[in-house]
Amino acid sequence: MKQKIYIVEDDASIGKLLSDYIEKYGFIIKVVQDFGSIIEEFDSFKPDVVLMDVNLPKFDGFYWCKRIRETSTVPIIFISARESGMDQVMALENGADDYITKPFYSEVVLAKIKSHIRRAYGNYATITEERIIELGYLKLYPERLELRFKNQSTIITKKEGILLECLMRRYPRIVNRDYLLEKMWDDTAFVEENTLNVNVTRLRRRLQEFDIENGIETVRGVGYKLNETIFEGQ
């Protein structure tokens, strides 16, 4: 079955360049038609990967990325002329999996698409039994990127899932920062110190959604550990 790529780009020439190049390699391509109906187009097309620009009409790419993440864990790769670290942080905070700056090499975009497809679908296709990591009432479902606490649930990003799995499996021990960076570093992007900080902050917010305060403890100069507050109320 051919995989589908949804391109959300307001520059028609760049959209056509990406579409023509990627289509040659056997993908089915859809370029956004209505910038006010991106979610409707996404739901109808059901893509395997989304290529997302930041500067878009009506709402920016960060907004649409966050909206997609409300219902889907599909890989989202930002392609933008905005090079600042803050833009890349914003993309990650809103659920993106990768960030490519313009001008770009089409070969790099294709390689990243294939890599994310391989990671999101290829390895999981052979799984016959879903993994569940449990710690008290906290349950992590890595394959579907879902986190549950008692009767509540939320969707997390891939890197948040990697980070939380490390912390849960090693509880109550401290997990070294270098170890976490190594685990979060994949073949699609180098993970910087700031990326780890961002994802720790985001995970704390996820736990706060479950009324778990101070769920992740920072051990200065060493790393992080889950706090015993995750067991409160049991």
Rank of each mutant, 00 (worst) to 15 (best):
M1T: 15
I7H: 08
S13Q: 12
L17S: 07
S19I: 07
Y21I: 04
I22N: 02
E23W: 06
E23I: 08
Y25N: 07
G26Q: 13
I29F: 08
V31C: 15
Q33N: 15
I38M: 09
I38G: 07
I39C: 12
D43Y: 12
S44I: 13
P47E: 02
D48V: 00
L51H: 04
K58E: 13
F59T: 09
D60S: 11
G61H: 12
F62N: 13
F62Y: 15
K66C: 07
R67T: 10
R69P: 08
R69I: 09
E70Y: 11
E70A: 13
T71N: 13
T71P: 00
V74T: 15
P75Y: 03
I77P: 01
F78W: 10
F78C: 05
F78K: 03
S84G: 07
G85L: 14
D87L: 03
M90F: 12
A91G: 08
E93N: 14
D98H: 06
Y99S: 00
I100R: 02
K102H: 04
Y105R: 08
E107M: 03
K114V: 00
I117T: 05
I117P: 01
I117H: 00
A120D: 06
N123G: 10
Y124L: 11
A125S: 13
T126I: 04
T128I: 11
E129F: 09
E129D: 11
R131L: 09
I132A: 07
I132Q: 09
I132S: 04
E134L: 03
E134K: 15
L135K: 07
L138K: 02
K139H: 10
L140I: 04
P142S: 00
R144A: 08
R144S: 14
R148P: 01
N151H: 06
N151S: 08
S153E: 10
T154Q: 01
I162H: 04
E165Q: 14
L167F: 10
R169W: 00
R170A: 10
V175Y: 11
V175C: 10
N176P: 06
Y179E: 12
K183M: 11
K183I: 05
D186C: 02
D186T: 08
D186Q: 05
D187M: 05
A189R: 11
F190K: 13
V191H: 03
E193L: 11
L196Y: 07
N197W: 14
V198W: 02
V198M: 05
L203P: 01
L203Q: 02
L203W: 03
L203G: 00
R204D: 06
R204A: 08
Q208L: 12
Q208R: 09
D211Q: 09
I212G: 04
G215M: 03
T218R: 15
V219A: 07
Y224R: 01
Y224G: 03
L226C: 05
F231Y: 14
E232G: 15
